[in-house]
Nucleic acid binder design. Structure first.
Lengths: 225, 225
DNA sequence: ATTATTTTGTGATATGAATCACATTACATA
DNA sequence: TATGTAATGTGATTCATATCACAAAATAAT
């Protein structure tokens, strides 16, 4: 299936920098797919020859740790996936899986490289993106190790609200085990802390439905404990 | 002070991709400095208008965490420093400090951007670098949270040997507190585990001088505990 | 050299959070 | 609708490691 990328309503800032010519090249060299929740987008250990554009939906990036699979990051559309692993290595170094229904476009690596070469502004934006990611990982590194569970949970909830869903009310796209994994804690602790936050009136929990009732408090918990 | 970058013996792979023209531009637009151990290279919170090329020496990247300063990474020459923070933000989002005597070149951001624009191969290499960093941070994320202290210490020691010093014998460029901070543990644990490794004949510790005696064992500890 | 200051070693204790062990509930599927 | 399976709630227990509290070295400063 092939859409005309020039009319794609789901452009990232980078994509909007592309010349018509490059967009046409993209149109002729991508494979569009509709995915269901749980479908694999990139699989660690397989050959990586494509960059993936996440048009719609939500995905998790996970990687095989020494003992268990570890979720390192949530990504929502629109966004490019797999740049680090596709450029950095012949074999995928991590997995990406849809956690909601999603639409993705597979773009051949060479085509993507060519587009980078021909579009300075696009390249700048992609580099910006890398910079943002690296900064985020630095912050994450400092926060995760210095904060207690409640702080990290608060962070994660704020992240979902502000960065992923852009709303203070959302339904967690992960099970408690997965959420625990993302936050570097145990399933049981997630359950307990969620209940605590609810009891304290900071959030309202209803199954996986979460509503932030008192953002000030949540921020305080994030900063302190 | 100004050297001719064309003759600089400390090029990264990326830098070696540059056209003579760009190298000349670089020569005319950089400030070279000799630094002493402990000198600040980039300071979190100040304005960031320069990319820094670490010509020689060793540096630590550290960032203000919620409670204390956190070392997130060690970098050795030759390498560019401050790309994420210089491109990603007007204000430096982290600090970089020399942990050994070092030589650095300050390059104006606009000059650097211009060089990126004009050198596709250079840009590719820089992007590769970003990719490698992001992959590393994913791995680090999974490892740090799943491993016990001994495993993480083993990792860090292997990292120093293989990536930083390229030798199984080296002197730690950090105090035990700093090392602890880098490995997400306490100073006391570092002292204890170092002593354990020594007692087990895995490494020989003599002050800050470390020699890996049994790399196999160290790798095992890294993988298991 | 002498004194001050930072670094390191090591035991005892405290603690946050994982693990264990079930009960309970929601969800999927035959 | 029944029935198996996965997800969640909650107490009791264990455990790794931080913290505390000093002593001893090692460095730096005067």
């Amino acid at each position: 299936m092939q859409n005309d990328c020039r009319n794609c309503p789901f452009k990232t800032k980078a994509t909007s920098m592309l010349s018509d010519c490059s967009l046409e090249q993209l149109s002729n060299n991508h494979l569009e797919l509709k995915l269901k929740k749980g479908d694999s987008i990139i699989k660690q250990g397989t050959y990586s020859t494509n960059v993936v554009f996440l048009r719609t939906g939500l995905a998790k990036i996970h990687i095989a740790g020494p003992y268990t699979e570890q979720i390192v990051k949530m990504v929502n559309a629109p966004s490019y996936l797999g740049l680090p692993t596709t450029f950095g290595s012949k074999i995928n170094q991590y997995s990406v899986t849809a956690v909601s229904d999603a639409e993705v476009c597979f773009i051949d690596l060479e085509v993507f490289q060519n587009i980078l070469d021909e579009n300075k502004e696009f390249t700048r934006e992609i580099i910006q993106e890398f910079c943002k990611n690296e900064l985020e990982s630095f912050h994450r590194c400092a926060n995760r190790t210095q904060k207690l569970i409640r702080g990290n949970m608060a962070d994660a909830i704020l992240d979902f609200a502000d960065k992923i869903f852009k709303s203070d009310s959302f339904t967690l796209p992960l099970s408690q085990s997965e959420f625990a994994n993302l936050v570097d804690t145990s399933r049981e602790s997630v359950s307990r802390v969620l209940a605590e936050f609810d009891k304290d009136g900071i959030i309202k929990v209803n199954g996986r439905q979460i509503e932030i009732l008192n953002k000030k408090s949540l921020l305080l918990v994030s900063q302190n404990g």
